[in-house]
Design a protein around this nucleic acid. Structure first.
Lengths: 343, 343
DNA sequence: TTGTAAGCGTTATCAC
DNA sequence: GTGATAACGCTTACAA
């Protein structure tokens, strides 16, 4: 096949023939131009141009044993914080000549394992995972393939895995302290679903811990776990409102839940601002639009993606890197509301 | 090299040896299990298991001349609508055994061309582009590589390109008619930056056209183009507010601009609801949180991604598909405000 | 049903 | 600086 005048896409040999050099020289001219005489380099460039030659990645990968590709396995792109991190990740990779291969597992560890294997089969040179919790098979595959990787949105206490992330627990504690200092004593929490989400778990635990340290117990009927949607936030507020005394402060697991909760307040004529705190990335202005009485924790999510990329790129280049990086978060207090005076 | 006891990752030949069959049979067992006797298939499966064999994608791609990979080149993931479309795209591709390779060009056509070439070099089997406007070189490369592709967020009037998208112009016209029917006559528009964004352009043109049809001219000082950020929305509202008579209706290019504009209204004590209309994807509940007086156009962005994937998958499988698909959008009116009575 | 062997298009190791 | 040429690991006619 491919005999006769059938015109397929040009290959390296075609370029070599047209430039009157060997394929070896063309290959060098393309990947290490300094290793070839300027005049021949020019001739080759010309040939590439006229033939519209584009390298064949698979062949290149097979011979060089690397794809210049990095895989990322994340829960979802429908959460703005992950989309933002992924965007920054891709951008930084691109600047270094790497291409991003993406997979979303929608909070299913089984799916995550399958997708990770798929990316490894595709030959990614490095891997970005999100969070600490993964199936054993995932780490096993990474190990046997000697694949450089980094965990994002995670801080490994054991020091076993390279990671870059935020301290969710500490952030939650700061939020709780802020509210306690304002005088709040009746709390509620609308968190994410902790079963499949360690970040949601850490935030809840942080709040519990901070309150407990001051002798306050977060009662079960004052804690709900919800998916990160506005309607869940609304529903969550209804759920935690029953009973007396009513909570004077509601801590939400992320911005979407918080805005949903505020919407429900408004709909029910509940006085707003009541102090609502958000843990997680937030669009600061957006929060201000919804209500000025919103304390949030700002996570620099883009930096996270960029940093993850840099970490991987360094390791792929054989440069040394810190194995564990904690990025600072910022508590943003727009207005502070004390609890209503007791009747 | 690789002599002695050096243990590298297992290859097909290793599996074959262990299973006492040829590499051809292993290959078949892996890709077309029905073509091999159940008992040998089992033996092979066993061998794969014990060796922890994972296929080498590059080799596979080189031999089979396809990567089971699809590339997507989008403007950004920092816009929720594109993140949502991309998420659905990835999900649908995954279900068919394809992997997504992603690139964001941040509204730069030159970058887009470069990234498209990079994806083609990586060997994607198909390509998803966003919008109609691309450098000639992009279509040229696609053509010479005979690469299946589909344009999303675009409807090609000429019928030259396979596409799936929304009619932005028609959506804008519907919004304008809605406001006209309410009695509004003084309009302003805070749109996206039309120079680099054909969707923003279509929306602006649609509004202009609809108003013109009723003899109303959108005066230059009542039209501003802004990036899709909240602060730009706030600024935009300040920009279009000057002069008399003041606009009674403000049409915004997307939900972010609209929410920013409403924030500015509130900050300046301007009576809200004033009628603000949004063209573009919106989180319906989010809009309701900000103000009940917000007319929006809902775009089913996830369907768009899923459909784009299906289109490409069909073509890759040699199945026939419609070349052009227009997805319906929905005008969502939450509350309708007539303009204030003339003094 | 299974085996043999010829590629697939590069890169990399040598000589020259 | 440049050229031969052997890998790279798999798929796929074609044979058996």
């Amino acid at each position: 096949m491919n005999r006769g005048s059938g015109r397929k896409t040009a290959k390296l040999a075609d370029v070599a023939r047209l430039a009157r050099v060997s394929t070896a020289t063309v290959s060098r001219a393309l990947t290490q131009p300094e290793k070839v005489k300027p005049s021949t380099a020019a001739r080759i460039r010309q040939a590439v141009q006229t033939l519209g030659y584009v390298a064949h990645g698979a062949a290149r990968a097979l011979a060089s044993r690397r794809t210049r590709t990095v895989g990322a396995v994340i829960p979802t792109l429908d959460n703005a914080i992950f989309a933002n991190t992924t965007h920054a990740l891709q951008k930084t990779l691109d600047e270094a000549g790497y291409t991003l291969v993406l997979a979303c597992h929608e909070y299913d560890v089984r799916t995550e394992a399958r997708m990770t294997q798929a990316l490894i089969e595709r030959g990614v040179d490095g891997l970005v995972l999100l969070g600490m919790s993964h199936e054993a098979s995932v780490f096993h595959m990474i190990e046997t393939h000697q694949l450089p990787y980094v965990l994002t949105w995670a801080l490994d206490a054991s020091g076993r895995h390279p990671c870059v992330g935020f301290d969710n627990r500490a952030a939650a504690i700061r939020v709780a302290h802020h509210l306690l200092d304002l005088g709040h004593r009746e709390f509620a929490m609308i968190g994410g679903i902790t079963q499949a989400n360690e970040r949601a778990r850490e935030r809840l635990e942080g709040v519990r811990e901070a309150l407990a340290a001051r002798g306050i117990v977060l009662r079960p009927e004052r804690v709900v776990e919800k998916p990160y949607t506005l309607s869940a936030g609304r529903e969550g507020l209804r759920n935690v409102l029953g009973g007396a005394p009513a909570p004077t402060a509601v801590i939400c697991g992320n911005d979407v839940l918080a805005i949903g909760a505020l919407a429900e307040c408004r709909a029910r004529g509940i006085e707003v601002p009541r102090e609502v705190s958000v843990t997680g990335f937030d669009d600061l202005e957006m929060a201000a639009v919804v209500t000025p009485a919103l304390t949030t924790v700002h996570f620099p999510t883009a930096e996270l993606g960029s940093y993850a990329a840099q970490h991987l790129l360094a390791r792929l280049a054989g440069r040394p890197v810190e194995s564990r990086t904690e990025l600072p978060v910022e508590l943003v207090v727009r207005a502070s509301t004390a609890p209503p005076a007791k009747p």
